[in-house]
């Protein structure tokens, strides 16, 4: 799995995402197949499922946004919640859609997380590059990736400096109004931005002194770009079959 070209992996992952998102919501018999695909891939790539699942928890608060469909989708009521005079009906199609959204979201996050876990950022960017994404964007993304950790450390240092000075005299809320606290945080963001701006000027100088002339050039890369057409065709066929299966077998 780790040896597969980054471009192939990216395309397969996108195919998987498309298949999952386009799957009819009542195709409950096909969802397990999609899950098995994830588990097998994780197993082949020797990625621990636990770490994958942890990553997926990040997006779960968003599932709340789908909660209202439980009540608003027309259909047979399968549960009626009453509270004094008010009562509200949960519809069967509503439950089905809510669960389907949750399942799709979860499967998609697993697939995306698998892609990230098996492909280093650099190769991923090369793959995006090979898919004809604009060079300015991929080069800026590479630069961002390089400085993300440097600047994050700066942010952590700023926050540490703030917390080491925000002692509490007694239990409870610290001093200062919310507006004041926001202003302090804003000052931190401002200084982070300024430092980054000045850093970008120094980086620009460093690039310039090594010949940068406004055009972005990189080594013609040798690895990671090789596409495996056969794998892609098999994958595409598999996804098409799953979609067909999901449409017919509900």
């Amino acid at each position: 799995m780790h040896q597969l070209g980054a471009q192939t992996k990216l395309l397969l992952a996108l195919g998987y995402l498309f298949t999952t998102a386009a799957m009819p919501e009542k195709a409950w018999k096909v969802y397990p197949v999609l899950l098995i695909l994830i588990i097998c891939t994780a197993f082949l790539a020797r990625i621990r499922l636990v770490s994958l699942i942890k990553r997926s928890l990040l997006a779960f608060p968003f599932h709340l946004a789908a909660l209202p469909v439980l009540f608003t989708l027309p259909g047979d009521p399968c549960l009626i919640l009453s509270w004094s005079k008010f009562s509200i009906a949960v519809s069967a199609p509503g439950v089905n859609r809510f669960l389907a959204i949750g399942a799709k979201m979860w499967l998609c996050i697993q697939a995306a997380a698998l892609l990230t876990a098996t492909t280093p950022m650099r190769q991923l960017l090369a793959a995006v590059d090979a898919l004809r994404a604009p060079k300015v964007l991929t080069a800026a993304a590479a630069l961002m990736w390089r400085y993300l950790f440097v600047i994050s450390e700066e942010a952590v240092r700023l926050m540490r400096a703030r917390s080491s000075r925000s002692a509490l005299l007694s239990e409870g809320q610290g001093g200062g109004s919310i507006a004041w606290r926001a202003k302090v945080t804003g000052g931190m963001a401002g200084s982070l931005f300024l430092r980054s701006l000045e850093r970008s000027e120094r980086i620009y100088n460093a690039m310039q002194s090594r010949g940068y002339d406004g055009k972005i050039r990189t080594l013609p890369s040798t690895q990671a770009e090789e596409c495996a057409p056969l794998t892609l065709v098999i994958g595409g066929f598999l996804f098409a079959c799953l979609l067909l299966l999901g449409t017919l077998w509900q």
Partner: peptide, 12 residues
């Protein structure tokens, strides 16, 4: 271009 890359990191 370097400005965009570094500021992207700063926003992140």
């Amino acid at each position: 271009f370097p400005l965009m890359g570094v500021l992207a990191a700063a926003i992140f």
